[in-house]
Design a protein around this nucleic acid. Sequence first.
DNA 1: ATAAATATTGTTCACGTGTGCATACCTTGT
DNA 2: ACAAGGTATGCACACGTGAACAATATTTAT
Lengths: 344, 344
Amino acid sequence: MTVTIKDIARLANVSHTTVSRALNNSPLINDKTKNRIKQMADKLNYTPNVNAKGLVTLRSYNIGLFFSTLNTGTSANFFYDVVRGVNMVIKDQYNLVVKSIDEFESNYNRISSRQYDGIIVMSQTRSDRALIEHAISVGIPVVLLNRAAGDLHVGNILSDDLKGAYQLVDYIIRNGHRRVAIVEGREGFQSTIQRKNGYLEALKDHGIEPNPKLCIQGKYDVGSGYEAMRQLLKEELRPTAVFCSNDDMAVGAIKAIIEADLQVPEDISIAGFDDNVFAAYLSPELTTVKRPIDQISREGAAMIMRMIDLKLKATQEHAMSSVEHITIESVLVIRKSVSTITPA
Amino acid sequence: MTVTIKDIARLANVSHTTVSRALNNSPLINDKTKNRIKQMADKLNYTPNVNAKGLVTLRSYNIGLFFSTLNTGTSANFFYDVVRGVNMVIKDQYNLVVKSIDEFESNYNRISSRQYDGIIVMSQTRSDRALIEHAISVGIPVVLLNRAAGDLHVGNILSDDLKGAYQLVDYIIRNGHRRVAIVEGREGFQSTIQRKNGYLEALKDHGIEPNPKLCIQGKYDVGSGYEAMRQLLKEELRPTAVFCSNDDMAVGAIKAIIEADLQVPEDISIAGFDDNVFAAYLSPELTTVKRPIDQISREGAAMIMRMIDLKLKATQEHAMSSVEHITIESVLVIRKSVSTITPA
DNA sequence: ATAAATATTGTTCACGTGTGCATACCTTGT
DNA sequence: ACAAGGTATGCACACGTGAACAATATTTAT
């Protein structure tokens, strides 16, 4: 039924080893026979059996792309950009296996080095630490995106969310705003904390006392942005500007403001984070921070491939190879949702 | 290093066969030894070698999720919903391998039944036919989502886009609109054609002659919706309502209208398609058609699992098993972006 | 021309698992 | 006590591939 290298060998009057070598482009094989065999394989529609291959080469040709969760807290645009970015780089060399970490329920035994040649962790919370430690312990190269690796011996790529948020809030304050609120991201997410800290630092540097009433917990989804804004609107002293920790929530916030018969940015300024595809097409166009998700993903994919290659070539001396850490700057994107005011 | 069933066998003083049977819950094994072995395997952190397993059982435990393309034309919300829906159902039983069909460049040889136990094709264009035929020919169960299977012998789940578009446009016309434009989806996509046809049928049933100048080609992304609307605004006889073939383009269209100092829906009514997460939070809230992507994906995942199981149990008599076809209704979601007018 | 070196091909085994068949143990009925 | 039947376990092989080593063919150097 399915054709194997032994079938080809029989037809070509050679041993299966020769076929194996020919198809793997071994320099040991005569070019003439090599071509003859390759052609024959092509004609017979030969497909290598990945299981048999992996069994002996100890490879799976799978790269795992792990998200903390695929439920609330992961915005669609973010997810799409990540998968696309990674897929673009690994192309047909690997299979991209998408997983949600929370589905493992803390039982990581099923994750073995024969299952994944490498794992990219799109980290949202520190709770993925156990997973990463397990992966390392079974010898799988790991690249961690989106949060600092700390003491974990893994490749690391991150965007400087704190700095991005700082620049944005600084910009807002420089436009005359003193009562600047924040709609925070999902609780426990690293990005949530980073952006909050950037916000706090900017306030501090301008001598503004943070007001807990102006810090509302969100969940990174549109609905939570809407609810958070509604809550802010109830304050006796309304904020004049609101920093939403991502663009999705900014959409919700704008909705709540318009529903209250107010205008953005005339009555309340709004800023987001991410610069997703919609940001430039909202009304008003959203001032936000561009987080280079695309770039992070592509760099991450390239890095994991480097690490896999390195591991294959590794000898004892190189066992403890060094790992790379890359930070990609986020950039402030000024549009029209933040107005200049003269403080009262 | 890594523990195999032979290691367990040695420690348990049994043959590796017994271990294999015990771990696979064979009724042949005594319950006492079975438990003893299972416990031991647990303690040793045993992980089955999927390659070895697959080599003999002819399975890969991979389910392919194939998109026509991961570039323009696939909206992020759509993509996210599909992956999440499928992943939710297959859980830890299978690996979800995400692929973009266009990356194969018409060479499908690498797709074998040992690589994928089943394939879910999220079809956007008919050009995926070759891929599907290949998959069938090598014996992989296939479920086709999003477009009619026609003569292809595959599982099929689709939403009735034509009907959905018809109902929406019918609703628009019943609100007094006669000059109803359409911003079409990406050229060649089945959904584009279906929605256009629904639009045309509705016009026809109301005795309205379709006007080619009111039919603008889009690409399903925000920017193309914006451009299309700008073009429509240049018409001497502007449409009073525009049906955008998805919500993303509706966002772009609304932007163009507001930029021209006009209002939605007072000056021009807008409707979308999909009912994505943003639809309810736009201003005005978007009237659209809810396409149950989530449900389609989940049903699709469940169906492919049924087909895989069926294939495993299949005997010669059942070789040509029947395949299921399911249609899921899309539903009109009336919000506030379409106004009632009295025709001049 | 012949030994040495090189290029090319073949033999055999291993990877880790599951299964058909053989075997040993245990129960039951007589 | 012994055959018959069931229950529980082991043996040997197969899956398809790649690699170490052996073997043969070809070229080069003297």
